[in-house]
Simulated assay, not measured.
Amino acid sequence: MLRAALNRLLGMAIVMALVVTIVFIIVRVTPGDPAAVMLGPDATAADIASLRQRLGLDASIPEQFVTYLGGLLRGDLGTSIFLNIPVAQALWLRAEPTFFLTIFSLLIATAIALPVGVLSAYWRGTLFDQAATTLAMLAASIPSFWLGLIFMQVFAVQLGWFNTSGFGGPGASFAERMHHLVLPAFTLGLISSALITRFTRAAMLDVLNDDYVRTARSKGMGEWRVVVRHAFKNALIPILTVVGLTAALLISGAIVTETVFGLPGVGSLIVSAVLRRDYPVIQGALLVVAGLYVLVNFIIDMLYLLVDPRVRY
């Protein structure tokens, strides 16, 4: 297990090195000058050149890349051009809404998808199976921003149960802030549950007719014990994979939902940074998101070893 973990860590380091290089190049070749954006349309060429020199943007691309790598090796993601604070601090100040939104959305998605997927496979061909499959396909086809607007109109505007936007004031309690996340979390959770439901159903169908399941039934074991203890446990590998991918997708997919519900999370920070060509924030946010992707994949790989001992060999 230790050797497998070390191999995964080496792979993570290589992937992150490639991500750092690609992100830096893409951000630099994107049209737009942050100095010109900061100074406005009335700025002179001399003013723009002076600000570019002060920000270090007048250096060549290789020189900027070397400087950026040096900062990363020291744990420095840079300083925001517009916010004038360290990028790590800017991301940390916006992390709470995005973190809890991702966690709650994943919990809602798995709470819906796992039992529905298992029951759909067990009752294959029945009305329940057909309804679950149809609803899963429908949920996968609905844009998150549209569903969010529908939820906002019904539950916030008409019924008045939730707020239409925001994350509570500066003095808001934790419960009040979590209350603001109910509608966004259900929006992301319902849409994300579609993929997990279909994978769970497919994985269960693969194992329900295997020999060990028939053997357990022939021994007189209870039906639901056979389904949960034997079939579901052996179907966990593909299910864990899709849950891990869903968790990673939720991190980036939260950008649209945060914009719709006006949440001051990492997503809105990235959008504003892109519009203002705030290079350090864009790079730092993309690196953090990519790092979370890689970390989630690493955790899923390690869970494989715990769930199925055969993977160790």
Rank of each mutant, 00 (worst) to 15 (best):
L159C: 07
Y68I: 03
D211W: 12
V307S: 03
V296A: 12
V23L: 01
I108C: 04
Y279W: 08
G148W: 10
V207T: 11
T79C: 07
P97S: 03
Q53S: 13
E258K: 02
G160K: 04
T126S: 15
T246Y: 07
L292S: 10
T259E: 13
P309I: 03
F155G: 04
I299Q: 12
L106K: 00
A139S: 12
L236E: 06
V29A: 03
I22N: 00
T21L: 14
Y313W: 13
I142D: 04
V274S: 04
P184C: 05
M178E: 12
F151L: 15
A49S: 12
V154C: 10
L205M: 13
G220V: 05
T102G: 14
N209E: 15
F186Q: 01
G166R: 04
I85D: 09
W123D: 09
A285R: 02
R225D: 14
P238K: 08
A131N: 10
W92N: 13
T44W: 00
V228D: 08
R310D: 11
F128G: 02
L181N: 02
Y293W: 14
L269F: 02
H230D: 07
V274Y: 01
M178V: 12
L39S: 00
F186G: 05
A194S: 11
F186D: 07
R201T: 11
V260S: 03
V311T: 11
A139K: 04
I81E: 05
L18R: 05
W224L: 08
L183K: 03
L83R: 15
G253H: 06
D33L: 05
Q130G: 11
